[in-house]
Amino acid sequence: MKRIISILIENKPGALARVVGLFHQRGYNIETLNVGPVFDGSFSRMTVTTRGSENDVEQITKQINKIIDVIKVSDLTEGDHHEYEFIMIKFKHSEKIQKILKSLNGKIHEKNNDAMVMSAWGSSSDIEAAIKSMGKVNLLEVARSGSIGLHEGEKVLKI
């Protein structure tokens, strides 16, 4: 099962590597990874998506929690949550792709004779489905942010 793990971590050199390294050391895979500074900039928030059973994820979150720089860890998929992913796509002119992206909050950033650059965002399953339906013919380049997400309701990840 797909899991979305949110991690609040000290924004210090090497902190990210400790988390990423741990997944490999413990035999788990990272599907997507997003990280950026939050609050006063002394924290980073990471969002990692991975696959595993409930036991696997419990073990992953416990192990991540042991990293000294980690402040909080939460498995968003444990409860109701919001989850989105942002993509940017460069493609040869194609009505079909434009239409698909428009349906995902699409925005045109560049248009020239040969190609277009558009961005879009949606749930990662919608993004996944959209990329599949575009076909390979006109697609030149795809960049994905990886999932980011928040708990629904009052639950928050902060110190």
Partner: peptide, 16 residues
């Protein structure tokens, strides 16, 4: 050293 020892330490510091 920080990279090589990362999986086998509780924590590590580099003095900046």
């Amino acid at each position: 050293m920080i990279g090589i020892s990362r999986p086998i330490v509780k924590h590590s510091f580099i003095v900046q």
